[in-house]
Structures are given as structure tokens and as C-alpha cells.
């Protein structure tokens, strides 16, 4: 784990941080309110959460919503830029791959999960 959140006690911004919890592919992940999903994923030690067409792993590249490398599905909404979306307590994040078709769960229920 190399990327991480600056610990509160030595953060010169004097930040606080209300904890929140999301799930990533069903696994709980903890963060603080105000983090983007990308920030939360990086701070929880993940460096990648998406696969390019060849299956190669991808994570954050541009960090400001330009490169679309960090896309995730959030509460059933596909293709959300993780670097731009703030995490909300209870968010269900699904990671994806362009290499293997993502499973679909039935005709009328969207290309992600649940409506």
C-alpha cells in the first residue's frame, strides 16, 4: 500500500473527517466524507480498479475528469468518473473491465445492477 491519506495529526490543513463506509464489489471500504471515490480507493490501498480492453489494470491517471481511466459503476450508474464523484455513505461501487463482458442481470434492469 503506497498511496494514502495524510494522517489527521500531521495534516497542516487541520482537517477533521467524518467517517463513511462504501462497498467495492461487495467488500466494505472506509473513508471520510468529502473524499472522491478515487481518493477513497487510493487511500484504502488500491492502485487499480478497472481493466482496459487487453485486461491491463487501470486506476487514476489525470485525476481531474479528463482521461476516463478511473470509471466505476456507482449504485447501478455505469461509467462514473471516480476522481470526480464524492463518496456517499453506503455507495455500492462496482469495478469493471472492458476485457470481459460485465455480467448483466436481466433485460429490464439496466446494464448495471439494480434500478
Amino acid at each position: 500500500m503506497s498511496s494514502r491519506l495524510v494522517p489527521t495529526e500531521r495534516d497542516a490543513t487541520g482537517r477533521g473527517g467524518r467517517p463513511l463506509r462504501i462497498t467495492v464489489d461487495g467488500v466494505p471500504a472506509d473513508g471520510i466524507a468529502g473524499q472522491t471515490l478515487a481518493g477513497l480507493l487510493l487511500a484504502s490501498g488500491r492502485s487499480s480498479w478497472r481493466q482496459a480492453p487487453s485486461g491491463a489494470p487501470r486506476g487514476v491517471f489525470c485525476g481531474i475528469g479528463v482521461c476516463f481511466d478511473c470509471l466505476v459503476t456507482v449504485n447501478g450508474e455505469p461509467d462514473v468518473r471516480a476522481c470526480r464523484r464524492r463518496a456517499v455513505d453506503g455507495d455500492e461501487v462496482t469495478t469493471g473491465s472492458r476485457a470481459v463482458p460485465r455480467p448483466t442481470d436481466g433485460p429490464e434492469s439496466g446494464t448495471g445492477e439494480g434500478q
Partner: peptide, 25 residues
């Protein structure tokens, strides 16, 4: 294209905007 390679702007946005350091070294 390897994870861990990012733009300088990404490192800056994460450090200034979220207090996340993209790496140790």
C-alpha cells in the same frame, strides 16, 4: 499506462484537494 503513473495534475489535485499522497516514493 501502468497504475501508479499519473499526471502531475492528478498528484496535485489529490494532495491539495483530498490530502491523499499518490505514493511513498
Amino acid at each position: 499506462e501502468l497504475p501508479g503513473v499519473c499526471t502531475a495534475g492528478a498528484a496535485q489535485a489529490l494532495a491539495k484537494g483530498e490530502r491523499v499522497a499518490v505514493g511513498q516514493r
